[in-house]
């Protein structure tokens, strides 16, 4: 990315010039198996009252970066997250898996940011990391799950984006990706630098090893504010959001239906139910 600022020594690099620099995006999300809820005051996601973790689908992006690094020489992996205090837990997991360094973008002004603001801030952070060849992301976060941030990032950075990739190869300055769509399976070629979002079909993320966990403690993590990124605090956060939540309602528990135990006539009873409901 040619337009990166001059003072862009990426964290942990010490001036070394990697053959390839990968940024993997890691979002910190409330645990999906806990009771996720909203802040009553402003209808934003409750990120304090629920245990958080690295969005599971981002582990596939970290794993893919590690595979590329293992297959080549001089590949540098920077994990990047935007989120409140505590979101660096997502970075920690990425570092334990094997990423080289982390960047945590944190600023009180970011509370309640929508997808557009998130993408704008992440794009600015990627530009500040500098000389990035490949941005790897998950296919969707497990909380907002909009699947829009990667394409928005690419739009901001003027880069190609290949989404929902199930198989990826990097050779020279080109990525080749397979994506299995609704009506066809496509092979895509794009020039680096590019943004690629990966699905859970692409690999099997590793568990951090004991060695990885110990090594992660010494890996550098930088904390950047909006001022560090040159992003106007008034352009992000809840008040600047381009969309607003009007109302949040807890979905009523589905009323318990009829459950029968098969005593040789379970299939007939099932058909009777379908007929009574006019499905046959």
């Amino acid at each position: 990315m040619g337009a990166a600022p001059a003072s862009r020594n990426p964290p942990g690099l010490g001036g070394r010039n990697p053959a390839m620099k990968i940024v993997t995006l890691v979002k910190h999300v409330p645990d999906a198996t806990a009771d996720r809820t909203f802040n009553a005051a402003d209808n934003t996601t409750d990120r304090a009252g629920v245990d958080g973790l690295l969005s599971e689908l981002d582990e596939y992006a970290v794993e893919e970066a590690l595979k590329i690094a293992e297959a080549g020489d001089g590949v540098e992996i920077v994990a990047l997250t935007m989120g409140p205090d505590g979101a660096d837990a997502a970075l920690k997991k990425a570092l334990q898996m094997g990423a080289d360094s982390g960047v945590h973008v944190v600023d009180d002004a970011l509370h309640g940011s929508d997808a557009l603001a998130t993408a704008q801030v992440l794009a600015a952070a990627i530009a500040k990391v500098g000389d990035v060849d490949l941005v790897l992301t998950g296919m969707a976060s497990t909380d907002g799950s909009m699947s829009v941030v990667p394409a928005m990032l690419a739009e901001h950075l003027g880069l190609a984006h290949v989404g929902f990739v199930g198989e990826l190869t990097v050779s020279g300055a080109t990525v080749t990706a397979r994506r299995d769509g609704d009506v066809a399976s496509e092979t895509i070629e794009a020039d680096l630098p590019a943004v690629v979002s990966v699905t859970d079909q692409i690999n099997e993320p590793r568990y951090p090893s004991f060695k990885g966990i110990m090594a992660a403690k010494k890996k550098p993590v930088e904390t950047w504010t909006l001022a560090d990124l040159g992003v106007d605090a008034g352009a992000v956060g809840l008040d600047a959001a381009f969309s607003v939540v009007r109302e949040v309602t807890k979905r009523p528990e589905r009323t318990a239906g009829t459950v029968v135990t098969d005593e040789g006539d379970g299939g007939v009873k099932l058909a009777e139910f379908l007929a009574a409901q006019k499905f046959i």
Binding site: G257, V260, G266, G267, V268, E272, L274, I280
Partner: peptide
């Protein structure tokens, strides 16, 4: 089952073919 409007506790290998036959009959 907590979200079922209708549920059958049973082996799908016997329940489904029976349901299919009953539907075809109807």
């Amino acid at each position: 089952f907590a979200m079922a409007d209708f549920g059958v506790v049973g082996d799908l290998h016997t329940v489904l073919p029976q349901a299919t036959a009953e539907i075809q009959k109807r």
